[in-house]
Design a protein around this nucleic acid. Sequence first.
DNA 1: AAGTGGTCTAGACCACCAT
DNA 2: TGGTGGTCTAGACCACTTC
Lengths: 268, 268
Amino acid sequence: MPETRTPNRPIYRQVAEQIAEEIKAGILPADARISSERELAERYGISRMTARAAINILAQRGLIVRRNRSRAYVAQPKFRFDLSSPGGLHEQLRKAGVEPGAKLITAEMLPYDALSPKVVQALVLDEGASVYHIVRVRTANGEPIAVEDSYFPAHLFPDLLDFNLTDSIYGILRKYFAVEPAGSVQELEISLLDAEWAEIMGVAVDLPTLEIWRQAFTADNIPFEFAHDIYRGDRILFIARTAGPESFLAGSGQLWQQALDNLQADGA
Amino acid sequence: MPETRTPNRPIYRQVAEQIAEEIKAGILPADARISSERELAERYGISRMTARAAINILAQRGLIVRRNRSRAYVAQPKFRFDLSSPGGLHEQLRKAGVEPGAKLITAEMLPYDALSPKVVQALVLDEGASVYHIVRVRTANGEPIAVEDSYFPAHLFPDLLDFNLTDSIYGILRKYFAVEPAGSVQELEISLLDAEWAEIMGVAVDLPTLEIWRQAFTADNIPFEFAHDIYRGDRILFIARTAGPESFLAGSGQLWQQALDNLQADGA
DNA sequence: AAGTGGTCTAGACCACCAT
DNA sequence: TGGTGGTCTAGACCACTTC
């Protein structure tokens, strides 16, 4: 019976904190394999269920990543995604030196009759108008980080499905349809990844996520996209800017970045 | 041994789904008390640990709320908060017919030497400048929904601490200091509520949250606030707008709202 | 005083994965 | 084939809430 670290705090939380400290201190570097639940149980003299509870906390907090039903590994730093940037996820990842990817799950044209009212309303569709429905799993350096469930008015983007839909869709819209995303209204919700999406993404169920419903507009205020995105909260850090001249914000961004780096260094 | 509902899906998840359906169907209305873990265990012929796992899922998903160490109750609908609106949380809640409140945790003046580099950088402080440090728990209809940990340059807001800091701080800045929030840069992170903040807020640990680091600017691009906010993800729905003329967005907002109501009705 | 949630144990079986 | 995570059990003790 090894003595427990601090009193009055549950054991599973103490164990989680200890592992978290080892990760922050670099003793367990990124991609290092975490001890198995049974090993942890023996090492700390606790039951496996208690060790498992500790691991669960770390996984939900994004400090470790479970791959399939296999062991857990120390997570790489989170990816950054600017919600208010006109550039899509694909372009932002590439600029950051990350290899973006997409796995096409669904690509279909839906006739007007098959559309739910929310799509019709969000895209302000005329009677009879059909839409393209595209579902993709987005990856960063091969790791699944999001799913996008998007709808585009077919009359705006003829033959959209013939393009390579694993590329940046916003890039396609720009290059071939001269559509420039100019604004959006988004609704954000913190949620847990449900079993169906978890399976599609190939990641663990119940991961905390940022769920976004987005209506995107052209400069002429034509809604050209309605999307339902789910981003892994354990793997992504989000940026958002409101108002303010872009030039200034670009400058302050660096300062901001510095400040946050210091935050990290403090070890919050 | 009562037969299990559907095959191949863990029991605790089936029980959670069943309770979730009862909530969505209105059989369990808002504020209704959920059966105790032992009652559920007996009713479904499962162990208490399994029943507890089901309850945990519902709590993290925001369908039920635990009060202290007491029983769980069906949650009220989530509050809405527009991240890109210049109006603060206080004003937005009031407009929505919700009673906003704040509990002052800390109100102090910090000398320059006591400041962390991140505060100095974010507020672009001159050597020797001091700041006001204010920590508040924000409530909606008496329910704790967020904590705000904010820093204001003292030279911009002399005697700020003498005001009633349970009112809207942005309101105070407007009325008495003629400072109009004009823009912000925010960094958002999905996280789980840690034990310290959970205790300060008086809610359960490990609730999914939206954590925000914010640098707010005046129309003259003077950073007047640096804040670290933590919002309960299980109780708040967030809105964000990027670009686009306000008039148009105001109009489309209603359409958007309708679309989301339909989404809810679909029972996602 | 009784009931409740929070924690913890020492087992168990299974499906899946790597070897 | 052996180890692993995922699930589940039938208990237990404690602190706290509720009555």
